[in-house]
Design a protein around this nucleic acid. Sequence first.
DNA 1: TTCGTTGACGAACGGCGTTCGTAGATCACG
DNA 2: CGTGATCTACGAACGCCGTTCGTCAACGAA
Lengths: 255, 255
Amino acid sequence: MRRANSDDDLPEVPLPPWRKARKPSQPRPQLSRELIVETGLRVLDAEGLDALSMRRVAQELGTGPASLYAHVSAKEELLELIYDRVLGEVRLPEYDPSRWLTLLRQCALELHRVIVGHADVARAALASIPTGPNAIRLSEYMFGLLIDAGMPPRDASLAFDRIVLYVCADAFEGSLHYPRMKALGHTKLNEYFHMYVAQIEEYFSSLPSDRFPHLSRHARALVADGGEARFRYGLDLLFDGLVARMPGGGGKPAT
Amino acid sequence: MRRANSDDDLPEVPLPPWRKARKPSQPRPQLSRELIVETGLRVLDAEGLDALSMRRVAQELGTGPASLYAHVSAKEELLELIYDRVLGEVRLPEYDPSRWLTLLRQCALELHRVIVGHADVARAALASIPTGPNAIRLSEYMFGLLIDAGMPPRDASLAFDRIVLYVCADAFEGSLHYPRMKALGHTKLNEYFHMYVAQIEEYFSSLPSDRFPHLSRHARALVADGGEARFRYGLDLLFDGLVARMPGGGGKPAT
DNA sequence: TTCGTTGACGAACGGCGTTCGTAGATCACG
DNA sequence: CGTGATCTACGAACGCCGTTCGTCAACGAA
């Protein structure tokens, strides 16, 4: 009995030293916060946020759902950890306050890119008030740019907050189509969008033109631009306002 | 048997004609789309979106959950109907394209006010792609203002879309505190906010000042302004950009 | 009167987040 | 070398959830 180890599908021979050298008795990958977060992110990327349940993650790890609660207090915390993990993928350009506008804009685009790249993680992003290490890192960078560019701290706080909110909100709105696409059995994204856009245009142009003259007349224009163009338009609106409010004149103060 | 009607707690006398004139045999409020939507909204206002389940609504109506599915295809549809019902409370000022800026801004503020006034309906607002009659009415008004003010249709479409997105996103962000407050057992809103703000400031100022100089130094400024000021700041950013893009010059073209 | 249609609804299915109690492993300390 | 305390793992269960199925009564048309 004393020689029995937990790895019961191996013969009872002494393990070679280099096997033991790795780590002391680690039959399975062993549960940990990072492993749970990583697994959760994998499930989310592959099957969407709706499929991301405690049970699903546990199953993926070959255990029961109760095991996760030793490392994570609740599903909400897991989602926050996953979101912060995703924020870790944001690459920040070299810090240079003299180019604050360019860098801030680049930052917003990068954040958007990363969030959109992870299925509908945007839902988790918007639903959580992020305080993880990667969120802090991003905040310090963006907020710092505005401060060092000469903005009063309160304005910088507001501006930074609004930009991040807008980025996440747009990503979220875009991610709404994700589950719908699956629900309709579509697998090609372009195909789905084409159909969806056609339906919306159909609907607008079929509205009674006496009560809804503008919507019915401009149905085509209403669906003309897709996700990325819409996002950039709103971002430009925000940044135009920002430049105008920057102390030192509303002209072209910096790049 | 032939005289029996379904209203079994009334004596079996012939109903007076004015009772029958209302509607043919209506023993209970009788299920209907409107009644379900109204009940759902009542539950949402009183107990929040998390408490709004099919079972809860059915229970409120004295029946089982299956009964609702004769009038509503799914919970998602119910949420969309509730949201459109809420949009019906938006009061639109008299249409006047010459004052497009004022009216559009007023519209955004009114939309924000209505959404915030209904607990966390913002979650449903953001999660749905609204096509109900009240959403269309609002769209026609706002989109029309931009068109009649001389904006090219595609720009007007983008601008209108971004404004609504921002309004909903801000309302949603604010509504995040709603369930948290309940979870912490707080009942006074001011009390909760005071505590929350104090915690965040505490956290920021406790960050190591060598790695996070801006966040730790300006902790107070970061939490200085509450919900409404933040909302207005972002709205002003958007509208500043909008004015600058309006054909006819970026000066002060209209009120 | 009959019959097809429709709304109401009890029951059940499968899945969810979370908690409880227990069993085993690990480790500080005598 | 014990040994008790602490921590991880996890099966089982609780009480929810959205939705579907089959049944049953009521009703309008034939």
